[in-house]
Design a protein around this nucleic acid. Structure first.
Lengths: 369, 369
DNA sequence: ATGAAAGCGCTAACAT
DNA sequence: ATGTTAGCGCTTTCAT
C-alpha cells in the first residue's frame, strides 16, 4: 500500500489543494469544507496513501510507540503479560517495540538506548538489571516509565507488583500446615526484587515457625528451565532431603519438576512443590501446580494506566506504587487439593474452578488518553 | 538520557563545529580529524545526547524497525519463535514491533496499516487471515515481507514452512502402526494453510490405509486451549469413540488433554494423542506429548535471512519457498516410547534425548547486510 | 475555509 | 577535513 515516495504534497497537488488542507483532512480538523474533504479523501483512497508517522512525530514530539522490556519471553508469564499489553496498546492506537534482554545488563542498556533513539513515548520494564544505569538515568529525567513484576531498589518510578514477600509466607505456611518441616527454596536471578522478596518471605516464615534454615536447602536457579532442572538434580542428591520446595516462579517449578521426575521422585508424595505466577500451564491437569498467583491481566492494565497517565502528563509528580495481594492457588503438587488426583497423569474428577476475584486498587477506574 | 529538545545542532554549537561534522562523527565517517571527533564525542557524552532516529529515517528511507505479526502469543509456539527473531534482530541492530492479531482479520489489517505508517523496513507474518487484502497489496508492491509457519494461498512471497502435509501423514501412520483404526483430528482455524495442509495429510493417510473417514471424528477447534477443551469434551461423548487423536498443534493438544483428563479418559491407554510443533511444554515429563516438530529456531533464522535479503535488495525477483522436513518426536502420549512411563505423573527413567539433526536448506550460509 | 511559510532533526550532495 | 545548503514529509502558526 502506498507507492514508494508518496507524500501529502502529491495528494495535495492531485486534489488541487494545499498540503495543509490534506493535513487537516488527515487529522479530522473541523475547518474543512465537506466537498474538499471528500475530494482529498478520494485521492488518498485511490492512491492508497498512508501518511508517514516519522515526519509527523518529528514535529508533534509523539511517536505513538512504547517500549516493552522483558527478560525471557519463553517464560510463559511474559507472553500472558505481553498479550494484555498489546491489546490495550492497540485500543489506544499505540505500537509496541519488544525487547527481550535475557537478563543481560548489556543487552538491556542497548535496548533502552535504541528505544530512546526511536523516541518512544514511554517504556514498561518487566525486568531490570540494576547493574545497568540507563534506567536510572531515564527515571532521573522523568521519562515516562513503569516497573511491573519487579521494581528497582534504588530508582523511584511508578511500579506495580504483587506482595511477593507475603506470597512466600503464605506458601511456606501452607507447607507447614501440611506437616512439612524441611522446606527448600529454588532461587531465581539474585539481582531481582522478585526473587529477593520471595526469598526473604521464605526465610522469615521459617524463622517464625522456629525452623532452622539449612544452607543446602536454598538452591541456586536463574529463572530458566535448565537452571531449575540443575537445581532439581542437586535437590535429589541431598542425603536427607527436604519434603517440600518453594520455587521462585512457575517456570522454575516446571524445570524442577522435570528433574524430580527424572530422579524417580514423586510429586507430591515424595516432594511437595509450590511455584509463583499461576501461568496457564500450572493449571494443566497433568501438572496441577500449586502456586502464588500473579494477576497478570490486572497488572498489565494498571501498568498501562500508570504509563498513559505519565505520557499524558496527568500523573502526580511523586511515583506511585501499586501492590496487589498475593493469592495461593492450591492444586495437585502440594498434595492438599482433593479435586486433583494424586500420582496419576489423568485426572478422575474435574478441576475445582479457581475463584479469581477482582482486586480493587487505588487506580481502578482511571484512564489516560 | 538526552535532555528534552537536544539536537545535533546543539552538539555542533557546543563543540564548535558544523552540524554535518556531528553527523559524520555519529555515522563513523572516515573524513574527520581525530581531534575533532574526540571533541564532538566528549560533548555528546557529557550531554548524554542520543540521535533522533525519526529524523534520520526520514532522509535515509530506512527505519531499522521490522514488524512481527503473530496470531496468539499465548500459544507457546510464538514466544519461542519471537525469542529467536528478536535475538537476530538485535544482532542486526533492528527493532521489532510486535502485533498480535488474535486471528482477527480486522486487527490484522489495522496492524499492517500501522506498520506502514511507521515505515517499517519489512514484515514477518507468522499468521495470515486471507480475508484481509492488506497483505496482498503489500506483496503486489514488492514490499519486503515473509511468511513463516503459514503461507498465503494466493499471494506469492518468501515463505518458510515445514512439510505439514507429510507431518500429518507420518503422525497418522504412526497411529496405524500402533494398531489404531479410529483416528480423530482436532482442527485449528480453517483459514490457515497450517491447518489445511495438516488436515489434508490426515485425510489422505486414512484414505491410503483404506480406512473410511467419519465426519464426527473431525472435531472443530481454533488453536486455543478453550476451543480444544470443547473439542475434547465432544470427543469424550462420541459413543464408539476413536482410540487416537491428531491435534492441529501442541497448544490444541494441551487443551484436548485437559478435557480428556476431566472426562476420566487416560492417555495413552484410552486415547493416544499427537500434536504439532514440539513446544517446550511438550517435553515436560508430566506431559510427554508426541508431536511433529517444527524447528522454530531454524525457521526464524531462515525467515530473517529471507527478509534481510529482501530489505537489502539482494533477493531474486521471484519469491522463494523453503520447506523443511517434518520430524515425528515420539514421547508418552502415543504409548510407543518405553522411556516414558505410562499412567504416572512422575517418570521413572530419564527421557531419551531427542536427536535434532540440522536440516540443510538452499539458504544456509547466506546472510544479508 | 484555505494557503504560504517555517521548522522538527537529521543526512547528503556540493563546495572549499 | 569541514562547512553550506537543500531537502525528507509532515504539522503549525499566521495570513487571507
Amino acid at each position: 500500500m502506498g507507492e514508494i515516495r508518496l507524500s501529502s504534497k502529491t495528494i495535495a497537488a492531485l486534489a488541487g489543494v494545499s498540503q495543509s488542507t490534506v493535513s487537516r483532512v488527515l487529522n479530522h480538523h473541523p475547518n474543512v469544507r465537506d466537498s474538499t474533504r471528500r475530494r482529498v479523501l478520494s485521492v488518498i483512497e485511490s492512491l492508497n496513501y498512508v501518511p508517514n508517522s516519522l515526519a509527523r512525530s518529528l514535529v508533534t514530539g509523539r511517536t505513538g510507540v512504547i517500549g516493552l522490556v522483558t527478560s525471557n519471553i519463553v517464560n510463559p508469564f511474559f507472553p500472558e503479560f505481553i498479550a494484555e499489553i498489546t491489546t490495550i496498546a492497540d485500543q489506544q492506537n499505540l505500537s509496541v517495540i519488544l525487547c527481550n534482554t535475557y537478563y543481560d545488563p548489556l543487552h538491556q542498556a542497548q535496548y533502552v538506548r535504541k528505544l530512546i533513539e526511536h523516541r518512544v513515548d514511554g517504556i514498561i520494564f518487566t525486568t531490570i538489571m540494576t547493574t545497568d544505569t540507563a534506567v536510572a538515568d531515564l527515571a532521573r529525567k522523568a521519562f515516562p516509565l513503569v516497573f511491573v513484576n519487579r521494581y528497582h531498589p534504588r530508582v523511584r518510578a511508578d511500579t506495580v507488583v504483587i506482595d511477593n514477600y507475603d506470597g512466600a509466607i503464605k506458601a511456606v505456611n501452607h507447607f507447614l500446615d501440611l506437616g512439612h518441616r524441611r522446606i527448600a527454596y529454588v532461587r531465581g536471578i539474585l539481582d531481582s526484587t522478585t526473587n529477593r522478596d520471595r526469598e526473604r518471605g521464605y526465610r522469615d516464615a521459617l524463622r517464625q515457625a522456629g525452623i532452622p534454615l539449612r544452607r543446602r536447602d536454598v538452591l541456586d536457579g536463574d529463572f530458566t528451565l535448565e537452571g531449575a532442572y540443575r537445581a532439581g538434580t542437586r535437590f535429589a542428591q541431598i542425603p536427607d532431603r527436604p519434603t517440600a520446595a518453594l520455587c521462585a516462579d512457575d517456570h522454575t517449578a516446571f524445570g524442577f519438576l522435570n528433574a524430580l521426575s527424572d530422579h524417580r521422585l514423586h510429586v507430591p508424595e515424595d516432594v511437595a512443590v509450590i511455584g509463583f505466577d499461576d501461568v496457564l500451564q500450572a493449571s494443566f491437569r497433568a501438572i496441577g501446580l500449586t502456586t502464588v498467583r500473579q494477576p497478570v491481566h490486572e497488572m498489565a492494565r494498571i501498568a498501562m494506566d500508570l504509563l498513559l497517565d505519565r505520557i499524558g502528563g496527568h500523573a502526580p509528580k511523586d511515583s506511585r506504587l501499586v501492590v496487589l495481594p498475593a493469592e495461593l492457588v492450591i492444586r495437585r503438587t502440594c498434595g492438599a487439593n482433593p479435586a486433583w488426583p494424586q500420582g496419576e497423569v489423568s485426572g478422575t474428577e474435574p478441576q475445582t474452578p479457581v475463584v479469581r476475584r477482582p482486586v480493587k486498587t487505588p487506580l481502578s477506574g482511571r484512564r489516560a488518553s
